[in-house]
């Protein structure tokens, strides 16, 4: 079914563990675990969008076989609870005085996220003929202090459910969690396998692409397959011949580009238009002010400025970001920065 998708990145998504592009050593290790029918809690570490979740998912699929659907779950740790879920958590946080037991009449202090999303899954018994269930927690680092709640969970329910924790920032994982997991470093796809995959896709889609172009593709997308395939698809629309010029023409990181144009608009001193654009960005990408300032900082480094004005701009950015920590209205805080840059642009 996936192979009929009009989106190539879904169409060429690997279906089995073997189909995963490159990274032979990791595949070997994982296959070893499957043969043993046992593994400890795992921690997958690797940079953004290189396929950690896909590997974890396919691994659990291979491990659980036909009981995959009932015994595995992916939880996104950085997605906040919806209103209904918070309501549910609040409802369950008191244990009725009618119940018998030491907890009767007490309040449960487990974080809502754990209570709603993790516990119901790990507490349920295994279904079917598999040794344990598998829970995949994505963006584990964004749990912050809630990671502490996982320590006992991993021990108590460890026999019933193994966890695969996925993170991009290993430094943010607390030590007790690290010591409970076997760490897997997921590397980037190397150039050889990248070339192989792109060539097969090009063959299937009847594209003409030479090795130099593939090399450029590898470089500008920094080896992330999903972006590379996206770019390839966009390029293919205007014709089957793909060359380096076309790649550069179509390559855009839309969110970064938008923020770049926001900055440029500010340097031109047009505050009103800049605010309109910033609102548009905020509503379409759902950025928090922090994320927005982060990207601005990156984009600022790419723009040509003297050392003095660059430092001055970073100063403004830092000030605004600092204020936004306690601020309640994202729009006001971002507008503040935009206004300051507009003012500064008159001095330039």
């Amino acid at each position: 079914m996936l192979s009929e998708s009009p989106v190539w990145r879904i169409k060429y998504l690997p279906i089995t563990l073997n189909e995963i592009c490159g990274r032979k050593d990791i595949k070997e290790r994982l296959k070893g675990l499957i043969n043993d029918r046992n593994f400890p809690h795992l921690l997958f570490v690797g940079s953004k969008s290189i396929g950690k979740t896909t590997i974890a998912d396919l691994f659990s699929k291979a491990f659980l076989g036909r009981f995959y659907d009932a015994n595995s779950k992916i939880v996104y740790a950085n997605v906040p609870l919806t209103n209904e879920e918070t309501k549910q958590a609040r409802l369950e946080s008191y244990i009725s005085t009618n119940k018998i037991g030491s907890l009767a009449g007490k309040k449960i202090t487990t974080p809502a996220f754990i209570r709603v999303k993790i516990k119901p899954f790990v507490q349920l018994k295994v279904l079917g003929d598999v040794p344990f269930k598998i829970l995949i927690v994505k963006d584990f680092d964004s749990l912050g202090s809630n990671q502490q709640a996982f320590r006992r969970l991993m021990e108590i329910y460890g026999t019933n459910c193994r966890m695969i924790l996925i993170t991009t920032k290993v430094s943010k994982i607390i030590d007790p969690i690290m010591s409970r997991c076997q760490v897997f470093l997921i590397s980037q796809v190397n150039y050889h396998s990248f070339e192989e995959l792109i060539s097969t896709i090009a063959e299937k889609e009847a594209l003409k692409i030479d090795k130099d172009t593939i090399r450029t593709l590898y470089e500008i997308t920094a080896g992330t397959l999903s972006n590379a395939i996206d770019l390839l698809q966009i390029c293919s629309i205007s014709g089957n011949n793909i060359d380096v010029d076309k790649l550069y023409e179509n390559f855009s990181n839309s969110k970064n580009d938008m923020i770049k144009s926001l900055l440029i608009m500010c340097f031109k001193g047009d505050f009103r238009k800049a605010r309109e654009l910033s609102r548009k960005i905020q509503s379409s990408y759902k950025f928090t002010s922090q994320e927005m300032f982060q990207i601005m900082l990156n984009e600022l480094a790419k723009l040509p400025f003297s050392t003095y004005s660059r430092m001055k701009l970073i100063n403004l950015l830092a000030e605004a970001d600092f204020r936004a920590i306690d601020g309640r209205d994202t729009d006001i805080q971002i507008s503040n920065l935009l206004a300051k840059i507009c003012q500064f642009s008159e001095v330039l």
Partner: peptide, 19 residues
């Protein structure tokens, strides 16, 4: 622009204080 910047300086501080 300079006046807008001034105004926003105050407004964003107010927002921070409110937070």
């Amino acid at each position: 622009n300079s006046e807008i910047a001034n105004a926003y300086d105050n407004l964003s501080l107010a927002d921070e204080i409110f937070g």
